[in-house]
Nucleic acid binder design. Structure first.
Length: 549
DNA sequence: ATAGTCACGT
């Protein structure tokens, strides 16, 4: 009788512990755990999982050995949790050791352990080890597939990730809302709408249309692929929305140059009682800057810490610097940099540099560029920014020196590339590259287009662009930049009036931007170009970016 | 009774 009572108490104490853990009340949870007279394996696992969930990895590792001493036969839950902790700290050596131990004591084959191992190896950078674990799984479970697919996507192996998804589908494995969320994210990074539409259809058919995460992924997808109305439609149909959903839509409107709507959504979000986070502010401030809504921008910037307890970070400052920069208020922008309550960051200098590039202020621009160069000489993007200003100001000698320095450090520069979706398949173009089957026609078409737009007053730039082509000398001039090849290819292979949609790895150069706008006039086509951070919707000779990018 | 995989920004 008394034993039953004790057991019952232990059960209740574990439930109370779990409740605290699930509510994130880790201080109380730890206290409860330490004061427990009768800890069992469940108590240990509960507290450990809680610590890992809240990112307290050090504390979790501190409990690992004491627990193992108490239960030397090992436990699958314990190992799954600790492997998750090593993914959290990003230490593959720790994860490997746990993997070895798990195998030794015979819990390494467990499905949960295998799945966390796959995830851990992916997050720690070894997709090969993850693949080995996956291959060894006697039965490929849904979570196993999800983890390996997400891993490939995480590492930028987008095509591989997509083909693994189809492999999963064909294997008869059950797909869940996790799978489809991952696939939508993969589609977001691919130059094809076909797969995403299919994923969207599967999602609805399988009854995951109401899932917050999958729907948010769709909102992001449609907005990144130029279908902001579709994004809005998905968003409006979501029964529950969280901060991330709102943020996706705010960023979507901002990226489409529709600042008023971004602000409207932002205001609505607050009205509905949702607390904006730093990502929300990033989106709405960037939107204000791009649409020239400087008053809204300043008001929101000031409301951050005043009303919402969100401290402006460097990127928020960078947005405001951009906002000033667009208005040509370069000195004010410089003053804002100096007034920041922290050391100015790269992004802030980069924003100033862009403003200087557009407004042709090379003096301040050079200062910004040198700041950047000095701050993180090992970082590739700094060289690119510096290269940009040298390219833009025609300083080919300095640009070449930057490229030299870059090579010396062994930093790899990826060639500029543009994808275009034509007749449901995606084509990739590299600047100056003649390997495409239609290369001859394409180059000819570019020449024709250039001649046509010259009549509209286009003057080809004489600048050289080392960013585009480090190795191919003949393509150093911007005539055959990847975006020009892609647009020529699109015009050749689609019916009149078909809008052209392209994605590229890099920011368009001035010359391409100019040429592209004029091409929309001579060809009577709409062209949209997306780079890493914005859309250019071009029509009748104008661009949605307002010539500032 | 306790465990694993997903979505927004840089």
């Amino acid at each position: 009788m008394a034993v039953d009572r004790l057991k019952q108490d232990q059960y209740i104490r574990n439930r109370v512990l779990l409740m605290h853990v699930k509510c994130g009340m880790m201080l109380d949870a730890r206290k409860l755990f330490e004061e427990m007279p009768d800890r069992n394996i469940v108590s240990w696992n509960t507290i450990l999982a809680g610590l890992v969930d809240s990112g307290e990895y050090r504390e979790a590792f501190g409990l690992f050995l004491p627990m193992w001493e108490e239960y030397p036969e090992g436990d699958t839950r314990l190992f799954a949790t600790m492997i998750r902790a090593s993914a959290g700290v990003g230490l593959i050596s720790v994860g490997k050791q746990l993997h070895t131990c798990a195998l030794k004591i015979g819990v390494g084959e467990d499905i949960f352990v295998s799945c966390t191992l796959i995830d851990m190896y992916c997050k720690c950078g070894s997709i090969e080890d993850a693949q080995l674990v996956f291959d060894d799984m006697p039965e490929k479970t849904t979570v196993g597939w999800n983890s390996i697919i997400a891993g490939y996507a995480l590492h930028g192996y987008t095509e591989e990730a997509l083909s693994m998804y189809y492999e999963m589908r064909d294997s008869g494995a059950v797909m869940d809302h996790f799978t489809l969320s991952i696939v939508v994210r993969i589609c977001t990074r691919l130059a094809s709408r076909k797969h995403a539409k299919e994923a969207h259809a599967v999602l609805i058919r399988r009854g995951f249309g109401r899932d917050v995460v999958a729907s948010t992924a769709l909102v992001d997808f449609y907005s990144k692929w130029g279908r902001i109305e579709d994004a809005r439609h998905v968003f409006d149909g979501m029964p529950t929305k969280n901060v991330i959903s709102w943020n996706a839509l705010i960023h979507g409107y901002g990226n489409h140059g529709r600042g008023e709507e971004a602000v409207e959504i932002f205001v609505q979000m607050i009205r509905r009682g949702m607390s904006p986070n730093h990502v929300s502010f990033l989106g709405v401030l960037a939107a204000c800057s791009r649409s020239g809504l400087s008053e809204h921008g300043w008001e929101i910037f000031q409301s951050m810490s005043r009303d919402h307890k969100v401290k402006p970070r460097a990127m928020h400052y960078a947005c405001m610097i951009e906002l000033l920069g667009r208005q040509g208020l370069l000195d004010e922008a410089f003053a804002l940099i100096r007034s920041a309550p922290f050391k100015p960051t790269l992004n802030m200098w980069a924003a100033l540099l862009t403003a200087c590039r557009v407004h042709q202020n090379f003096e301040l621009g050079k200062l910004a560029a040198e700041k950047l160069y000095g701050m993180e000489p090992e970082k590739l993007s700094n060289y690119i920014v510096l290269l940009n200003i040298y390219n833009s100001s025609g300083n080919i000698k300095e640009a070449a020196e930057v490229v030299q320095a870059l090579r010396k450090k062994g930093l790899m520069m990826r060639p500029a590339c543009t994808w275009i979706d034509v007749n449901q398949s995606s084509h990739c173009f590299l600047s100056g590259n003649k390997s495409h089957a239609q290369a001859k026609e394409i180059f000819q078409k570019v020449d024709e287009l250039m001649a046509e737009i010259r009549r509209l007053g286009y003057v080809p730039s004489q600048e050289k662009h080392l960013l585009h082509d480090v190795d191919e000398r003949e393509a150093q001039f911007p005539f055959y930049h990847s975006e020009k090849l892609a647009v020529a290819f699109g015009l050749l292979n689609t019916a009149d009036w078909t809008p052209l949609e392209m994605v590229q790895s890099h920011r368009m150069c001035n010359d391409c931007h100019n040429a592209m706008k004029l091409i929309t006039m001579v060809s009577r086509r709409e062209v949209s170009v997306r780079d890493g951070s914005r859309f250019h919707h071009m029509k009748d000779g104008n661009c949605s970016c307002g010539d500032y990018w």
